[in-house]
């Protein structure tokens, strides 16, 4: 789609806002509707849009498959690692209160933030991975 100037320009303008909105949904998840799942998908949508307009190779430059793969893994690890941390702190698995024994509420706040971040990273990178795998099939 190299010759569709309007699409190229408009998408370039929109893209930062898409990503920003993704981040907003991610971190506002504690207070309002939102959270890792939705944020991840929105964030990935930015990449997919980029790919649609500028081609797969461009996406792969920004987000190399191997990096995406590692991100998938590390998102899950972040999630599960938090759970393990709570266990190390003497609580149950994913008992966020244990993160800050003095102020359990604060610990829960922190815990849910980190866990949602993990979810967000995983969802976003999985979506990107799915897109780039399907789009790259038969061309690579």
């Amino acid at each position: 789609m190299t010759d569709h100037t309007i699409l190229r320009v408009v998408s370039k303008v929109i893209l930062p806002y898409v990503l920003l909105f993704g981040l907003y949904v991610q971190f506002h998840g504690d207070y309002g509707p939102g959270g890792g799942f939705q944020a991840g998908v929105i964030f990935a949508a930015g990449f997919v849009l980029y790919g649609l307009i500028y081609g797969l190779a461009a996406v792969r430059r920004v987000a190399p498959p191997r990096v995406i793969e590692i991100l998938v893994a590390s998102g899950v690890l972040l999630y599960a690692g938090t759970g393990v941390l709570t266990m190390l702190r003497g609580g149950n698995f994913l008992d966020y209160g244990a993160l800050n024994p003095l102020h359990p509420a604060e610990g829960q706040h922190l815990g849910i933030l980190v866990v949602e971040l993990g979810v967000g990273i995983t969802v976003a990178s999985v979506m990107i991975a799915i897109y780039s795998t399907f789009a790259g099939r038969g061309r690579a």
């Binding site: 793969e69 893994a73 899950v76 690890l77 599960a80 759970g83 393990v84 266990m87 149950n92 698995f93």
Partner: peptide, 24 residues
Amino acid sequence: MIKQNLLALQIVIPLIAAPLCILL
């Protein structure tokens, strides 16, 4: 710690290990 969380560990250990396999 381990004895108390045995039931969780049963699931969590392979769960964490799965993504680590991608990294290794």
